[in-house]
Write a protein that binds this DNA or RNA. Structure first.
Length: 202
DNA sequence: AGCACGATGCTCT
DNA sequence: GAGCATCGTGCTT
């Protein structure tokens, strides 16, 4: 399989925890006004069935979480805190209700557009290291120009939003830990379902 | 470098 | 009406 091939639906039709780990080091490409924005996934979280932190827990479908019940391989975007969009990839089979949230990425291509989307300026200086540009879920969506318009889109080139092979990451470069901001989920808040690439710094 | 807090609006009970 | 899968600011050490 050539490196430029899109990851197929089968990649996503596995449990969210499996997909999350496997997504580290993969590349996400967003076609933005005919320009490709390419970023490498460095920080992800899994949200599972029967997980109190998951928007689809108890299997209850609502207007917001409907895309989570599609078969794996579509995008799920939701709005939080009155101002932020957050990107997820739906995983598993149809009607399962699992997803992987994208918490951090490294820009590889399209820096000018990403920087412009982030609105760096006087009040918000542009971080020197690119790894700090999109180091939070809302920053990822803002930097890539993703909103509710992308909710439910298939992850394939035709939709302008897809994943490619990238550069798989060895276990030694991976740290796990509890997910962020889910204290309300009781014991489920302790599950180590966050995966991130350790920053190699010289 | 680390905490506390306000912004801001949608979702669901 | 409460709470939220957050961010940036402004203050303290």
């Amino acid at each position: 399989m050539p490196l430029s091939a899109a990851l197929p639906p089968a990649f996503f039709r596995r449990p969210a925890t499996t997909v999350a780990r496997d997504l580290l080091g993969r590349d996400l490409i967003v076609r933005h006004e005919n320009q490709p924005l390419r970023v490498r996934l460095t920080d992800v979280e899994a949200y599972m069935q029967n997980d109190r932190a998951c928007h689809a827990n108890n299997g209850k479908k609502t207007k917001r979480n409907a895309a989570m019940f599609d078969a794996g391989g579509v995008a799920y975007l939701y709005f939080v805190y009155g101002m932020h969009w957050v990107l997820n990839f739906v995983t598993g089979d149809e009607n399962v209700g699992e997803a992987v949230m994208v918490r951090g990425v490294l820009p590889l291509e399209g820096h000018e557009i990403i920087s412009s989307n982030r609105r760096f300026g006087q009040k918000m200086p542009q971080p020197r290291h690119e790894a700090k540009w999109l180091d939070g879920p809302a920053k990822v969506a803002q930097g890539l120009g993703l909103t509710g318009l992308h909710n439910g889109l298939a992850l394939q080139p035709g939709s302008g939003l897809w994943l490619e092979m990238g550069q798989p990451v060895a276990d030694k470069q991976v740290m796990t830990g509890p997910r962020v901001g889910v204290d309300y989920a009781g014991e489920d808040a302790l599950l180590p379902w966050r995966w991130r690439v350790v920053e190699l710094r010289g």
